[in-house]
Write a protein that binds this DNA or RNA. Structure first.
Lengths: 348, 348
DNA sequence: CACCATGATGTTTACGTAAACATCAGCCAC
DNA sequence: GTGGCTGATGTTTACGTAAACATCATGGTG
């Protein structure tokens, strides 16, 4: 290579300094710069200092595109998720980003506006051209299957909020365990049975909670009342809650998330049924606001931070050559007792 | 559910097919493959079909690292934000990701765990090595300044939740306008003055709302009661709310966000003061749950989607050679009337 | 029919990095 | 002193893509 002017683009400021620029200034070869840049041993201390000084002077930053090209990895994890409107997804995403950063990985976000097969397919096809080494999917796996996903063969996948541990690596909250705790808590207070304000049918988490609710009642030899459903939103909880409020015999409700529980509280309040004196309500999630509901909500705390952390662990483990098998990891929940549950009226 | 082999196929030869592979199979030069891949005109239809077929057969995907290296751009925007615990940040982030995707840009997330200068500096230094063309910062700009930010010269920055339109390009909700609307609404209902449950001192948004509240009162020749502060959380709103609830003369409160308003509602409820009969409460944000509070909360709707969209627009505009000057873009708020405000007791 | 414009395609090169290999001085053992 | 070894550094090459330039038929024009 002949005398080469450092990349000087006239119109729009100058581009960043390259290794060659640093090498020239330090009077060494670019390979030596590379060695210093990567903390390689075997560089004379004096030389190293010269190089570091030259780097500093030129404001050198390694070009990650070139690095990725050479190394064949991007050190980036893609996260596909539905709208960030649920606390759980957001908190999980946040934990993923934090854990990934700690491992030296960046996180690229791929939001899917509406949970249709087309949208999911679109996200994945964008992903295919994206610079990621692995993918964490926070959504229903059946949409994933239906989208005929075709990822580059080396891209690893971990799924949240799903079963399918036989096809994918799955990390999730222990939905069934948490639900059982909720139902048992209410039964132990003396309620004859527990009603359920469930989530939407197409959600695996909602399905799992509804199934576990039924199972826990069956196990305790109690009749299972009809299931009412919302779509996770407080508004839907309010609408469904009006039905429940009208039922005299309903004294205990397990809501599939805190937001619907909020709506339910409003419906009960409007119907003149006091919580917890007349009706006990228990939620699921433990969102930050639930301690400020009227009354403060008893609920099951989900450890989203742990879920996110485990996702990153799992996906990084899979990227290693001896990558492990598929399987499901469950994160336990914790009962948070506040003021929305009490013994039924008859027992008071 | 469809039988589907997991994406992991080890030992299946090379990881990904390159242009050269496709070219070989199609019997053309790799340059022709490049032309087809980039939708260049001037390729014989027959040749194009052959290339496309070869691509399909080999499962060819362009290597984004190589592409980025060649083109000198990553088509990625970095987003630095504090914890995703506030609705506003999350919604803005989501809108940014969606808008960016529409423009063919990916979004890389850089969460900052705690808002200390050190943490911010850490995030930026990680960012320096990151593959981004531009950065959107969702946080207090004073932390940004203190962190002695040193970004590659070509990386553009747009800031949310800040003033400093003279140093940076800023997009934000019209805090002052919204606040004025809130205060005027309460005064028009007949309240003598309006109290303010403010956000934390180190938040620009909180500061701006508090200032505007004071200004609106001064303008209407009303006395400004002492300011009470929370930290945005519902719990802090509850604590601060107990002070307000104890003040007989307090009949109207403007809470700086909906979550604190929620805590305030609980404090008022516990103190036996009815909303809106005894005390009117107005919030800020219009989070999805606020329609389900007891009572449903009157509040100012923030258009986070629009803020996010404008951020992306602004940052892309700045990336063009004729990049525009710094400046501030404000997004208006909208008053959402629900059931938490009414004329004061004396007027009833 | 010579000429040149046109369209289709191939060849060269460079982007910035880092592995692999090459060089070379200094030193020790025999 | 010679051979071999070690440590420090330089040179070559390749990663996959795409701009710039080169080549080469074809066909219309004068």
């Amino acid at each position: 290579m002949a005398e080469r002017t450092p990349a000087q683009v006239p119109g729009r400021g100058r581009a960043t300094a390259s290794m060659a620029d640093v090498a020239r200034l330090a009077g060494v070869s670019s390979q030596t710069v590379s060695r210093v840049s990567n903390g390689y041993a075997g560089v004379n201390e004096e030389t190293r200092q010269q190089v570091l000084e030259a780097m500093k002077e030129l404001g050198y930053r390694p070009n990650s595109a070139a690095r990725a090209l050479k190394r064949g990895e991007f050190r980036t994890i893609g996260v596909i998720t539905f709208t960030l409107s649920t606390t759980g997804n957001v908190r999980t995403l946040e934990a993923i980003a934090t854990s990934a950063a700690a491992e030296g990985y960046a996180v690229t976000l791929l939001p899917v506006a509406v949970p249709t097969t087309d949208e999911v397919r679109g996200a994945f096809s964008r992903l295919e051209e994206l610079a990621v080494d692995a993918v964490i999917v926070i959504m229903e796996v059946h949409l994933l299957d239906a989208a005929t996903v075709k990822l580059p063969p080396h891209v690893q996948v971990v799924v949240v909020d799903s079963d399918a541990g036989d096809h994918y690596t799955v990390v999730d909250t222990d939905q069934a365990g948490g639900t059982r705790t909720a139902v048992q808590h209410l039964l132990e207070l003396g309620h004859r049975t527990v009603w359920h304000l469930g989530g939407p049918e197409d959600s695996f988490a909602a399905q799992r909670r509804a199934d576990a609710w039924r199972a826990a009642l069956t196990e305790a030899d109690r009749p299972a009342p009809p299931l009412v459903r919302g779509d996770w939103s407080a508004e839907s909880g309010y609408l469904a809650g009006r039905e429940l409020a009208a039922r005299e015999e309903c004294t205990a409700v397990f809501a599939a998330n805190d937001q619907m529980a909020l709506g339910l509280l409003r419906a009960l309040h409007e119907a003149g049924r006091r919580v917890p004196e007349d009706v006990s309500v228990i939620g699921f999630d433990d969102i930050p606001e639930s301690g400020s509901f009227l009354p403060p909500l008893t609920t099951l705390h989900q450890d989203f931070a742990e879920v996110g952390r485990l996702c990153v662990q799992a996906v990084l483990r899979k990227m290693r050559p001896d990558g492990s098998e598929h399987g499901t990891t469950l994160v336990p929940t914790r009962l948070v007792l506040r003021q929305s549950t009490a013994p039924p009226p008859a027992e008071r």
